[in-house]
Design a protein around this nucleic acid. Structure first.
Length: 421
DNA sequence: TCTGGGGTCCTAGGACCC
DNA sequence: TCTGGGGTCCTAGGACCC
């Protein structure tokens, strides 16, 4: 598909959300932590300049944060999700050819009948409106492919206008030559290593490599990167597609060795994921339940492991199929407890648990009479999170994650609304 | 002492079939 | 007694993304 891809990327999104409701944070160093206050997931420019890395475990940067009076927040996903929806609504109003790519990014597509100047003008207008109507600063990159739009957006960060157009091949070469290979969309740690071994250091090196050679070394995703960098679009705008799986998992605030508490945590995760299933009008055919044991005290291999690799030796999992695809909370809780009894080892301590709903299908494709005959279904529908929760999810909640530093849920919680004095 | 959570896609290998 | 080649489907694991 020829034409223009425009990537709209919210700057330091979570930090910017906090600033919308607390303007005094403007110009101050701010970070937002992941759930359980584990690591840094969003940093203001001031914090980036202090050398605090994305994803750094909080305890490793706490000192520097204290020293520089960094304002620290726990994650407030309800707030971020709500503001994300507002940003996307502004974009959709401007251009219905949009793909929401993540909580803080969306691709827009414009037809080749437009001139680059027109697309730039439109991008500047979009940026202005998102700022004025939602209060979130953005960066926009314009290019003939999604991968190049990613490059452009990265360059747009920190530029004065916030909009960069790299449709011209001359401008593009100039930028790609100075663009590290690791920053190309789709190049992770392993891929970077392989590319370096081939003598490829910059995005330009990859752009000018032989696609077939790259395919043999890196598979189809590698080949696609080459074409995309050359300006040949291989990744079209995607329709919003229903999820293939849905999961809910949390690390515990403190380690758990008690089957009952594990059951409560799992029940809470099941209730939450079932609510999401129903909201999206889908049912799950099966469910996986897993527990993660705490690491042994002396495990030297730890540091060398890539972050995303799952250590199977600490991870136990079991799967159940439902007789009929379902989104019914009580039924899923019963199944989860059954799974737990299979997995649980007395005396073993655990640090995390989770559920994964798989084989998702639309509600209407599940035989409707059977669906309605589920006696608990009505109860399920009136169950509102926090107002009325399942007994199985427990009262004491000792397993709950830490989030001591969370800001108020200004937009989604009645008793946490912003007050004007 | 303390290192998140929720996803997708691709590939290799095994089981099975003809 | 001998033991091909090609296809499909499924799954686990790896890699990557934000």
């Amino acid at each position: 598909m020829t034409g223009y891809y425009v990537l709209v990327d919210c700057n330091n999104f979570f930090v910017s959300c906090e600033r919308v409701f607390n303007p005094s944070l403007e110009g101050k160093p701010v970070v937002v932590l992941s759930s359980n206050d584990g690591c840094v997931v969003s940093r203001s420019e001031e914090v980036k300049r202090l050398g605090v890395r994305m994803g750094a475990p909080y305890f490793t940067v706490r000192d520097i944060c204290l020293r520089h009076h960094v304002v620290v927040y726990s994650s407030n996903y309800q707030l971020y999700g709500d503001l994300s929806g507002r940003v996307m609504a502004v974009l959709a109003m401007r251009n219905p050819d949009l793909q929401v790519y993540s909580i803080d990014e969306a691709f827009l597509w414009y037809p080749p009948t437009m001139t680059p100047e027109e697309v730039v003008a439109e991008s500047i207008e979009i940026r202005r409106r998102v700022m004025q109507w939602v209060g979130i600063p953005t960066s926009l990159g314009i290019a003939p492919t999604k991968t190049l739009a990613k490059v452009a957006t990265k360059r747009a960060k920190g530029s004065t206008s916030g909009v960069i157009d790299i449709t011209s091949p001359v401008v593009r070469e100039e930028i790609l030559r100075r663009f590290p290979i690791r920053d190309v969309w789709g190049v992770g740690a392993r891929c970077e290593e392989a590319l370096h071994a081939m003598g490829i250091q910059s995005a330009w090196d990859l752009c000018t490599a032989d696609p077939l050679y790259i395919r043999r070394r890196l598979g189809v995703s590698g080949e696609r990167m080459v074409w995309e960098l050359q300006g040949v679009s291989c990744l079209p705008l995607e329709e919003a597609s229903p999820n293939q799986s849905m999961t809910c998992s949390r690390s515990f605030g403190e380690n758990v060795a008690c089957a009952e508490l594990l059951g409560q945590a799992l029940s809470t995760h099941v209730a939450s994921v079932c609510e999401r299933l129903r909201r999206q009008h889908v049912c799950a055919s099966a469910m996986s339940v897993y527990l993660v044991r705490i690491p042994e005290s002396s495990d030297p291999s730890d540091a060398s492991k890539p972050k995303d690799s799952i250590d199977r030796s600490r991870y136990v999992e079991t799967t159940v199929s439902f007789p009929m695809p379902t989104s019914n909370t009580p039924q899923a809780i019963r199944a989860a407890k059954e799974c737990l009894s299979r997995l649980f080892v007395p005396g073993q301590r655990y640090k995390k648990c989770g559920v994964v709903m798989i084989g998702l299908m639309p509600e209407e494709s599940v035989a409707p009479d059977l669906f309605l005959s589920q006696s608990d279904d009505h109860k399920t529908r009136i169950c509102h999170k926090e107002a009325l929760f399942y007994g199985a999810t427990g009262i004491d909640r000792r397993w709950k994650a830490r989030c001591d530093l969370r800001s108020p849920r200004y937009t989604t919680c009645w008793n946490e609304l912003a007050r004007v004095r």
